[in-house]
Design a protein around this nucleic acid. Sequence first.
DNA 1: GTAATAGTGTCTGTTAGACATTATCGA
DNA 2: TCGATAATGTCTAACAGACACTATTAC
Lengths: 265, 265
Amino acid sequence: MNEEINHFAGDNDPDRMLQKKKYRTPDGVPADIVMFTLTKRERKTVTKTLPIRELKVMLIKRKSWPFAGKWALPGGFCQENESIYDAAKRELMEETGVDGGHLEYLGVYSRPGRDPRGWIISHAFFALVEEWMLEHRQATDDAEEVGLFTIEEALYKLELGFDHRTIIEDAYRRIQEQMLQTTIARQFLPRHFTLSELYQVIQSVVPDFEEPNFIRKITSTRSRKGIIEEVRDEEGNPLSSNQYSQRPAQLYRFTDLRPRLSIYT
Amino acid sequence: MNEEINHFAGDNDPDRMLQKKKYRTPDGVPADIVMFTLTKRERKTVTKTLPIRELKVMLIKRKSWPFAGKWALPGGFCQENESIYDAAKRELMEETGVDGGHLEYLGVYSRPGRDPRGWIISHAFFALVEEWMLEHRQATDDAEEVGLFTIEEALYKLELGFDHRTIIEDAYRRIQEQMLQTTIARQFLPRHFTLSELYQVIQSVVPDFEEPNFIRKITSTRSRKGIIEEVRDEEGNPLSSNQYSQRPAQLYRFTDLRPRLSIYT
DNA sequence: GTAATAGTGTCTGTTAGACATTATCGA
DNA sequence: TCGATAATGTCTAACAGACACTATTAC
């Protein structure tokens, strides 16, 4: 607490303060974004089937010092007239050309020496975007190379700049947690979806999620059925889709309900 | 991304960079700590009974500009040679004189104009400390007034400086979430505790947690009994305590197990 | 028909939730 | 003895988990 009191050396005039600082201040506060997307790839089979989905992370290849030639997270410096979240939103907009999507704060990375340019405190976010949103950038901005990588590639095969490997690890842990504890799965699904699609989305983010009775459980237990609901047309007939299967499957959508989880209940 | 590239204007020498920055940088990056404690008050009854527990938050009364005379969270500025977490730990140590305790990152507060001293980006933490740890400060540091308040007092009765009301709201939400989803209850309990004590601790942080069959549920269901275990002596006899009741109650301790929660399972 | 995915029937053992009952000890 | 808290008994309905079975469509 004493630091705070003395930091500005008793000067009570905010306008003159900036010239009188006694302590070193950070050299920059960027927002870095771990952009996740779920790629869809058609399977070449005879009959209808679900596309293969795979979780990917978007990285850029740096052109200048530091870490030139290495892969890193997209990011940009925060400015005085915006919050860190604003900076992240702006950055996301610049990368995708789209305003929407899920953007969530991940944490702060401030280990001394993490950035050779000086005292740079980075704020990490993760975003869930659709695959087509990333094509925007590849088309409009040819200054830097853009790549989509699986988590394994990003973590174990690529040389990453800064402490971005740590950030991606943390982001991966967090998206897995959120996938099971919230309804962010909706970000990777159309508004109406089948339960197989939902199950597949969950599994592509959390590979060891296995629930043999998934459909039964989510539709027939009082405590869980609330988070999704059947889609019906104007007359109240259930809507179904046979886009991915011979037999049509019931369509569902997420409700606004969010159950409260507890280890004790 | 372009910001990042241009930020240092192509200068590749880190030593000279600080003099050549073209953009304004933050004026300070403090760590503010929401210190929670659970006070224990003996009940004056004839027979043995559990003490009354109440969640409190520790605030200090500011002596100087800005917000002189208002209550605020304890905090201190982060220095160049430490991480934000280090700064928070240092601050916690200064306030309590103790090194341990639970300290967890809460988030960043960076709304422009939030601090009249300039561009100040605050990082909030929350800590769980024992009541006696706060007496240290009251004894050794008489420069500023220290107070322990209930959440209701802090949020609705006090005039708080900065955006600290928002921070306390967020911290309260978070500690409630963590109380139900993790085993942070252990921070407020002795190493060995009775199930009534555990139940009471949970309830004092999450008042609307009600589980009439709490004891039954936590001891007899396979999925939940793993997080705690009975305490036994060397011969394997169960240990119990009649500190708070006539009939002795079985003592338990937390295990290291942490169940994975999911809205789908 | 066959293949492929959607969805239900059925069975057993476990859990939830409510309420009554017994246990242990101090005063 | 009574009073207070700890812990178990008991009963019904709901749920979990496994596996077999039926349903709907494309080809």
